[in-house]
C-alpha cells in the first residue's frame, strides 16, 4: 500500500494547509486513485471547506487504494514553512502511520510526522441554489473586506442587476463600496434575483487571505439570507477550494 504525491513547488500545499488551519486543528485528507479531497467544517459549523485536487494536478501521483491521512494542521504547516519556493514537495504514506515529506532543490530534506487517529465524521455539503453569481478580482475583494473591517465585523452583500454593493455598519459608523458591472474589479456578474445577505468578516478575511494566494479571481455565489459559496482555483493544478459560509442571524 502506497501513497505518493509530488508537486513542483510547495505553494499549493502551503495554501491548502493554511486555508484549512483557519478553520480546524486536525485535517483528514482522503487520497484515492483520482486525487486528494478534503472536507470539514469549523467547530461552530458556520463555515465549510471542500477541497478537490485531482491527480492530474501533481507532477507525480500514485495511490493504490483509499488512504485517510489525518494530521495536526499546525505540525503540517510548520513543516511546509521549511520548504523553499523552488523546492519540489513529495508527500508519502505507507503502512506505518507516518507521513513523510520530502523537499528537494539540489539536496534532499526528509521529515516524518505521526499521522493521528481520525475523529473525522463525514461532512455533507449544504444544499443550495444561488440567485447571484459574480467573479471578483481576488486582490480587489481582499481590499474590500479590509475596507469594511475598519468599521464593522460583518459585511452585507447586495447584488442588483447592474452592481454589487458591499456595506458595513456599526456604532462607530458605516462603509459602502459599490462596484458596477464593467469595472475591472468585477470580471462578470449574473443576477437572477436581487440578493442581500450579511456574513462574518472574520471568516471571510481568514479564508480569502489564505485561499486567495494561488488565484487571481474568486467566484462568489449566494442568495438572500442564504450561505455564501466561494470558489478558489488552486493555481494551475485544476484543483479548487470551495468555501461555504453561513449568513449572520438577521436582526429584527
Amino acid at each position: 500500500m502506497v501513497f505518493v504525491a509530488k508537486t513542483k513547488t510547495p505553494n499549493e500545499w502551503k495554501i491548502v494547509a493554511q486555508t484549512i488551519q483557519s478553520l480546524v486543528e486536525e485535517a483528514s485528507f482522503e487520497g484515492t486513485a483520482e486525487g486528494i479531497t478534503f472536507r470539514a467544517m469549523d467547530p461552530s459549523h458556520v463555515a465549510l471547506i471542500d477541497l478537490t485536487w485531482p491527480n492530474a494536478g501533481f507532477e507525480k501521483y500514485d495511490c493504490d487504494k483509499q488512504h485517510k491521512l489525518t494530521v495536526r494542521v499546525e505540525d503540517f504547516v510548520k513543516l511546509l514553512r521549511r520548504a523553499g519556493p523552488k523546492d519540489s514537495v513529495t508527500i508519502q504514506a505507507g503502512d506505518d502511520d507516518m507521513l513523510t515529506l520530502k523537499f528537494q532543490n539540489g539536496y534532499k530534506r526528509e521529515f516524518q510526522i505521526h499521522l493521528i487517529e481520525s475523529t473525522y465524521s463525514p461532512t455533507p455539503l449544504p444544499k443550495l441554489s444561488f440567485d447571484s453569481k459574480m467573479v471578483l478580482k481576488e486582490s480587489a475583494f481582499e481590499e474590500i473586506l479590509n475596507d469594511v473591517q475598519t468599521i464593522s465585523d460583518h459585511i452585507t452583500l447586495e447584488a442588483t442587476k447592474d452592481k454589487i454593493i458591499f456595506t458595513g455598519k456599526s456604532d462607530s459608523g458605516s462603509a459602502s463600496i459599490p462596484i458596477e458591472k464593467g469595472n475591472d474589479a468585477l470580471e462578470s456578474m449574473e443576477v437572477g434575483k436581487e440578493s442581500k445577505a450579511t456574513y462574518s468578516l472574520q471568516y471571510l478575511l481568514n479564508i480569502v487571505k489564505a485561499a486567495g494566494g494561488a488565484t487571481e479571481k474568486v467566484v462568489c455565489e449566494y442568495s438572500s439570507k442564504m450561505p455564501l459559496k466561494m470558489e478558489f482555483a488552486l493555481g494551475e493544478t485544476g484543483g479548487r477550494i470551495n468555501f461555504y459560509l453561513a449568513p449572520r442571524i438577521e436582526e429584527k
Binding site: H45, V46, H154, M226, P227, I249, E251
Partner: peptide, 14 residues
C-alpha cells in the same frame, strides 16, 4: 452576543 452571531450550516444540510 445577539449582535455578532452567524447561523449554522446544519440548517442547509437536510
Amino acid at each position: 452576543r445577539e449582535e455578532s452571531k452567524s447561523e449554522s450550516l446544519e440548517k442547509w444540510f437536510s
